[in-house]
């Protein structure tokens, strides 16, 4: 294992220290492993909290700041944070208008956030609502599984809902908007390589040079199927077709993210985006906004994911609203 770390067990704490050093506008609670925007709590604004296992950077800590999250809770690598972290964050960001928990649909994340919401209700009376993001079309049969995983759409949702909270909408309105975004977005991912969890020290799975995994999540878990490596044009089709087959995107303006899994260079992500855009054009899906880069990663995994959100004037307006975070910044 070759990694830029001091020790496998210190990686999360050391990364928090680095984030603090790089972004003095953020506040870091090292004991609870929570990253806060510098001016939290913002009086009268709905507080937005997310969190999850580490290893997906810049998600979630890189999206803390004006127009996006108020706090992000960091767990161990690929392990959900615990309710006491989320409770501390919930109390700290409540500006009197309540708090929304943004949760990716993984069993551990969902249960820990549920317990945090129960503790918040019992201890503080802070109004808490939750949105569970489940946009991964690779998981087909949700009746007999834990349901679709929360992946790339989480980034777009945190931006759009964050803008609405910044504009002063109340908790019910912000939660309804989050549910709307979740219902209109779909994602699909693929991997060229596995990744190495620092504490494990070896790749999570073996993937021969001539093969790729289609339909992966963000924890190095196996995908829907393993197929021979193919040109970018064919990979793009394998990602976009299941998305378009799951929801009718035709005619409405789309917000599209071509996301790197952490180990693919930007030049390849742009090659992929070109192919994705050509497929969407042909399918009659007008792309209104685009994001290309590493936004929700799986350590050093090579590969990418595609997220398509069926937007409207409201969502585009919120997308364009000012945002100032380490990983997304415009309009300020």
């Amino acid at each position: 294992m070759k990694k830029l770390i001091n020790s496998p067990e210190g990686v999360v704490a050391d990364a928090l220290a680095g984030i603090a050093a790089a972004h003095p506008g953020l506040k870091i609670d090292y004991a609870n492993r929570v990253i806060y925007r510098g001016d939290s709590p913002v009086a009268g604004k709905v507080g937005l909290i997310s969190g999850g296992g580490s290893g997906h950077e810049p998600l979630h800590g890189g999206f803390v700041g004006l127009g996006m999250l108020d706090a992000a809770c960091a767990g161990e690598v690929f392990t959900s944070p615990t309710p006491d972290q989320m409770l501390a964050a919930t109390k700290a960001v409540d500006g009197g208008a309540g708090v929304l928990h943004i949760v990716k649909n993984y069993t551990g994340d969902v249960m820990n956030f549920e317990m945090a919401a129960e503790l918040a209700a019992a201890e503080t009376g802070v109004a808490v609502k939750s949105i569970v993001v489940n946009d991964d079309v690779a998981v087909q049969d949700s009746l007999y599984t834990a349901g679709r995983r929360g992946v790339g759409l989480t980034v777009l949702l945190e931006k759009i809902v964050g803008a609405a909270a910044e504009q002063g909408r109340d908790l019910d309105s912000v939660a309804d908007l989050a549910a709307k975004v979740n219902s209109l977005g779909r994602s699909m991912g693929m991997a060229l390589t596995s990744c190495i969890v620092p504490a494990a020290g070896k790749p999570t799975f073996d993937l021969p040079d001539d093969q790729m995994e289609i339909g992966i999540g963000i924890h190095g878990e196996p995908g829907r199927h393993r197929v021979p490596l193919a040109p970018a044009k064919e990979i793009a089709a394998q990602l976009v077709e299941p998305i378009l087959g799951d929801l009718d995107f035709t005619g409405a303006p789309a917000i599209v993210m071509l996301n790197g899994m952490g180990g693919s260079p930007l030049i390849e992500l742009y090659v992929m985006y070109g192919e994705v855009k050509a497929i969407l054009d042909k399918a009659g899906v007008p792309v209104a906004r685009t994001l290309v880069g590493n936004y929700i990663t799986s350590l050093e995994m090579a590969g990418c994911s595609v997220t398509v959100l069926k937007a409207d004037d409201e969502l585009l307006g919120l997308w364009d609203a000012p945002v100032s975070t380490p990983a997304l910044r415009w309009g300020v």
Partner: peptide
């Protein structure tokens, strides 16, 4: 258990 285990086992055994 809830505050030290994390994942799914923490909330389940903790509860």
């Amino acid at each position: 258990l809830v505050t030290t285990v994390g994942g799914a086992s923490g909330p389940l055994y903790g509860t």
